[in-house]
Simulated scan of single mutants.
Amino acid sequence: MTKVLIATDKPFAPAAVDSIRTVVEGAGYELVLLESYTDKADLLAAVADVDGMIIRSDKATREVIEAAKNLKVIVRAGAGYDNIDLEACTENGVVAMNTPGQNSNAVAELVFGMMVFLARNGFNGTSGFELRGKKIGIHAYGNVGRYVGGIAKGFGMEVYAFDPFVAKETIEADGVKVVDSVEELYSTCNYVSLHIPANDKTKKSINFDLLNRMPKGGVLVNTARKEVIDEEGLIKLMAARKDFAYISDIAPDCKDEIAAKFEGRFFFTPKKMGAQTAEANINAGIAGANQIVNCIEKGDETYRVNK
C-alpha cells in the first residue's frame, strides 16, 4: 500500500490532520504520523518506506532524502522550501513541491499585527502613532505581498512595490504604485514588508546601505527568512539611527544584542508564526495531501520546485 508520512516537529492542528487523512485514505493510501519528534533518528526511520511526505519547517536534508528509498514526492506545507535539499531530491528522482498561497493571508495579517503592536509601543499605555497615511513598500509582490497590499489599503496607507519578476501592469491593477528599483522602494517608504526567498542572491542582501535609505522612523518588517538580513549591518544601522526599528516573526541570531541595546525598537515572535493559524494549517495541509495524490496518480507536478 502507498504510504504518506506527515513529519512535523511542530504538528499540524488536529483538524488539519483529520482533513489530510480524509484525502490520503480516500485515495486508498495509508497515512503515517511522526509528530513532535526530537531525534533525527526517528525521522530517518519513519521515511524508510514512504512514497509521499508532508513537512512544515522540518529539515529534509540529503540524509533524509537518501534514507527514503521509496519516496516519490515531498511537499513543504507552506511557501518557502529552503528546508528541502532540492539537489538531493533531483538526484534521487523525488519531486519537491510547496503549497504557494495557502498561508498567505495568515502571514499578511501577522505583518499588520506586529506593525500595530510596535506603533502602539507594545500597548504599554504611552502615546504611539497611526499607520494611516504612511507609505509601505512591499519587497516581492507574490501571494503574501498581494495580501499585504490589500490590507494596507484598508489601513489608508500608500502602497508601493518592487518585484522584477511580476509585470508592472499586474501590480498596478491592484492599485499599487510600482518603483523601478529596490533602492527606490527603501528610500520612499516608512515601512518595508519583506517577502523575498532565501537563496544565493538574496542572503544578506538587506544590508546597512539599503536600510539606511529609509526615511526617519523607518521600520523593516520581515516575515520572510532571517538569512536575507545582513545582521552585522542591521546592528550597525540600529546603533547609528535611533529612529529605526526592526520587527520579525523569526528572531535573528543577534537577537540578544538587539534586546540589550535597542529596547522598544524591535519585536520578535518566539518562533516563526506567519503560518500559525487554524485556517492556514488546514489549507496548507489539504493542499499538500492533494498534491501528493495527484502527483502519484496523475503525474501532476504543477508546484514542483526542483529541476
Results as ranks from 00 to 15, higher is better:
V111L: 00
P11W: 11
A152E: 05
E263A: 15
V192W: 04
T2D: 07
Y37P: 02
G149E: 00
A167H: 09
K203D: 13
T90L: 04
Y37M: 08
K255N: 10
V64T: 09
E172L: 14
Q276H: 08
D163W: 03
M53W: 09
F112S: 05
E227V: 10
D58P: 06
L43N: 04
K69N: 13
K216H: 14
N92G: 12
T38F: 12
M53L: 15
V75K: 01
Y29G: 00
I136G: 03
E109F: 01
A152M: 08
E227G: 06
E35F: 13
V192Q: 03
K3E: 14
I296T: 03
A46I: 04
G128Q: 12
K226C: 13
N83Y: 06
D256C: 05
A7K: 02
A280P: 01
G122C: 12
V221D: 04
E63K: 10
V221N: 05
Y246H: 07
A278C: 01
N290A: 00
Y141L: 03
I229G: 00
K168M: 00
A161M: 00
G156M: 13
P252G: 11
G113N: 11
D39L: 13
K201F: 13
K177Y: 06
C254Y: 02
A280Y: 00
V24L: 08
F267G: 00
I84C: 09
A79I: 15
V159S: 03
K134D: 02
T8F: 05
G299A: 13
G133H: 10
A77P: 08
G113Y: 04
V17K: 12
E279M: 06
M1H: 13
G125M: 03
I54T: 08
F244M: 07
F117A: 12
V24F: 07
Q102S: 13
T126W: 10
A260M: 11
E35A: 12
M53C: 14
D243H: 09
F244L: 06
K307I: 00
P100T: 09
Y303P: 00
A240Y: 10
A15V: 13
I250F: 12
N199F: 04
M157D: 07
F129T: 15
I65R: 05
G28L: 09
N121E: 12
A119P: 00
V305F: 09
I282C: 03
D39R: 14
D58Y: 05
V47Y: 08
V228Y: 11
V219G: 01
T90W: 02
P11Y: 10
N281K: 02
E130W: 08
M53S: 05
T99S: 14
V17Y: 03
V144G: 01
R56T: 11
V182I: 15
S19E: 14
L118G: 00
G299K: 14
V228Q: 04
M115A: 13
F262I: 06
N92W: 10
P270G: 02
M53I: 10
G175R: 09
P197S: 14
R213Q: 15
V305C: 12
V305A: 12
S127A: 15
K3A: 07
Y147L: 07
F267H: 06
G28Q: 11
Y303D: 07
G145P: 06
D256P: 01
